[in-house]
């Protein structure tokens, strides 16, 4: 008779429980009404079951977002865990929607659920992908924009994981600056 070992039937638990949110830009509704929780998961297997079941970012309509956040943190600046934080922001050009967007987003998800940022993983709140006509964006949100050491380390590791060239700079911006900006650009607190 065949023996089934525990490794064959137990799911692999993640360090954190994560919530995947979907934002659909319906102008007849308010911002929070357009934000929907899709599902929560806390094992490797349940992550893939969800990921394999939903559309890739490149297939979403313009104005839509996916957000993956630790359970208990809402994907908005106003959440207590986000309000002092900021984001590593990657802006993609239009061509990259076909070449890089889905690959970068999956890599971002794997960084988060696998706790890729070593001792700084606790700083991570979540990640967001915005699908926009002018160019898509992917960002990793962290909880404290003053925590330079953690932020820079996360940024460097993230860039490595995405396979970005050394010349390609990504910037970190505080949510405070992003929400109060008057023009279309926000100053970078850090860049790697």
């Amino acid at each position: 008779s065949e023996t089934v070992t525990p490794a064959q039937y137990l799911k692999h638990p993640l360090q954190n429980r994560w919530a995947l949110w979907y934002f659909k830009n319906d102008k007849t509704k308010g911002w929070t009404e357009n934000l929907r929780l899709i599902a929560k998961f806390d094992t490797v297997e349940d992550f893939w079951a969800l990921y394999n079941h939903i559309q890739q970012p490149s297939k979403l309509l313009f104005g839509c977002d996916y957000c993956l956040f630790k359970d208990g943190i809402k994907p908005m600046w106003e959440d207590d865990k986000n309000k002092k934080g900021g984001r590593w922001l990657m802006t993609l050009n239009k061509q990259q929607r076909h070449n890089d967007l889905d690959r970068y987003w999956l890599e971002t998800l794997l960084c988060l659920i696998g706790e890729a940022f070593d001792e700084h993983s606790d700083e991570v709140c979540g990640a967001v992908v915005n699908v926009r006509p002018k160019g898509d964006k992917i960002a990793i949100w962290t909880g404290n924009c003053q925590n330079r050491e953690a932020i820079v380390s996360i940024g460097q590791l993230y860039k490595e994981r995405l396979g970005l060239s050394l010349k390609a700079l990504i910037g970190y911006q505080s949510h405070d600056d992003t929400s109060s900006k008057s023009g279309s650009t926000t100053k970078n607190l850090f860049s790697v």
């Binding site: 993640l14 349940d46 992550f47 890599e107 696998g114």
Partner: peptide, 20 residues
């Protein structure tokens, strides 16, 4: 300890999950 998984480990489960 922390449950950390590298990308290859995670990727290895992508299609196992669907079949269970």
């Amino acid at each position: 300890g922390k449950k950390r998984y590298d990308r290859e480990f995670l990727l290895g489960f992508q299609f196992i999950a669907a079949s269970t």
